[in-house]
Amino acid sequence: MSLIDEDEALIAAALNGSAFAWEKLVKRYESKIYNHGLRLMGNSSDAMDLMQEVFLGVYRNLHRFRGDARFSSWIFRIAHNKAVDLNRKKRLLAGYPVDSDNEGDVFDSFADEEGEEPELELLQSEQNRNIMAMLNILPFEQRLIVELKVFQSLTFEEIAEMQDISENTAKTRFYTALRKLKSVTEEYHVLS
């Protein structure tokens, strides 16, 4: 049985009330969704909130899943929408305009021996801490493009359709994001 068929079997069993099937389905995707949330939201508590919101959304809408698309695509679309909502709420609560870029000293976020952000200390590897710090300097929209392109391996066409933007806009945002990351890492390596 392929993974896709197995997903569908688990969904059918969960819809019939099998708690075991539901748990197995969640276990299959929780790591991907949690790591997706970590990179997008920038800290573990928001990533946990996002993950719980995503699976709650999946649970509430499982009966609507028709199998036209792959379950993984469907769940990541839910995750994308929930991440956008969560980011908007966070910005509004913090009193920042929703579309404003992140500001502040980029290098404060990079891992070093003297001090790190508490949330980043929870991460397992220094490499992950550096990647998180890099992603955190990007505006949320660019971070989303990088996430979808680099980590989810979506095409620009799929990204454009998901974000309701043109394909060219998606390409430009991705290129701009990479340039920003490149300049930051170059500057960091020069200073260190």
Binding site: S31, M134, K182
Partner: peptide
């Protein structure tokens, strides 16, 4: 190089949670 650096992300372990089992049951 930057892109490949990002791709070096290692999956983080998910903290314990109930996986919505209570709600489901």
């Amino acid at each position: 190089l930057t892109q490949s650096q990002l791709a070096n992300w290692q999956a983080e372990r998910v903290p314990h949670w109930d996986r919505g089992m209570e709600l489901f049951r």
